[in-house]
Design a protein around this nucleic acid. Sequence first.
DNA 1: CGAGATTCATGTGAAGTATACCTTTAGGCTTAA
DNA 2: AAGCCTAAAGGTATACTTCACATGAATCTCGTA
Length: 401
Amino acid sequence: MQNSLQNLFEEYLTKKSLFVNKDSLTIRYDPSEIPHRDEQISVLAQITAPSLRGERPSNIIVYGKTGTGKTVVTNHVCKQLCLTAESKNIPLRTIYVNCKMNKVADTEYRLFAYLANSLGKKVPATGLPTHEVYKTFFNALEEEEKVIIVILDEIDSLVKRQGCDILYNLTRINSELEKSKLSFIGISNDITFTDNLDPRVKSGLNEEELIFPPYDAVQLKEILSTRSKLAFMRGVVDNTVISKCAAYAAREHGDARRALDLLRVSGELAERENSVKIEEAHVDLAEKKVETDKVMELVKKQPKQSLLVFYSIIQTSRNREAPLFTGEVYDIYRGLCVNTNTKSLTQRRISDLIAELDMLGLLNAKVISKGRYGRTREITLTLSKRLQSKVEELVREVFSL
DNA sequence: CGAGATTCATGTGAAGTATACCTTTAGGCTTAA
DNA sequence: AAGCCTAAAGGTATACTTCACATGAATCTCGTA
């Protein structure tokens, strides 16, 4: 056993990798070229450029669906901005926050805590008054004596959860700052997100806006082939593979991240099979794996109670085509709590948890009225059968069912 | 027959509770003069 | 007397519960044609 493991590792080392630089296919990678985004880049650069003269740039909201390059472009421009500033000794700083990340920046308190933290101030996870955390952040800002650009990724989910007061407070900070200047780049998947915003907030935050259209299949192909040249050894990827990845991703509203994931995972699968090049079959396998990984990642992050609720929903809908209602799910959930020795939450809370699962895209829950028969959420699953059973498996593991 | 009232099942908002954690402060102990 | 540590007091955020009211179309009711 031990020996074979060692063999495996040694074999792995001697084996030639298909990859030269796998990082260039991940989302963390900042490519030097971002094809088909010249316009967005230059607009963003123009808007943020005043920061180099110590002026406060306008606040911007960046719209676009997932994988249209919002985050990459924003980070890219900010990085270049910072590099320029650094070389010329200009006081400038950018902070990136993802507002969707659970338990990181999804409330006002946590957002300020995160921001303060990234300016080097330690703030405890709980206990302080929110205003105190706000002050800590504010003072940290003043101490910097810089122009500071805060990038709020997935800002729409923050607003959906917490309302727009947070944004109001954020936009207000500026008028109180003396030594530093603050501006925002909000990134949103939802184009309609400013519609329900308080007009004061809207005018403050939405000084400029920038829209990222989805990529089409041709553009995706181009992106993929640029990146694949960086990522793979020569002759590993051929055109048909790239076309296939692009086609799959184009089907999903032109999501470049997905396309890159597909290509990377295809490569990994091919490598694992000791294949010398990526075959179309690998892409098909990768398509499944990418989807699975994405969902499983998300599910794993959910708190136990949400998992139980989700599990109840999957269980109930298994033998049924018709959509489920909150009440049924709650009954199943209660039973499950007894089985797993878990303290069950109230229906009120479950109602909120279901709404959260809906927000995460793990299911569809629509509030409907059934007339005489009351009002409820109509719940349908969006995951494929295969993924459903994967989730079931995971939940059973967690609760050792 | 049709307009308006009724009804159901649960959505939804507000206020309250439990828990975990924070800072402040007062008291007690130690130490150095 | 000054300095340091500790534990209690008083405060907050968050996740959840409790309470009370809101919702909205299918169904019922009853007056009218």
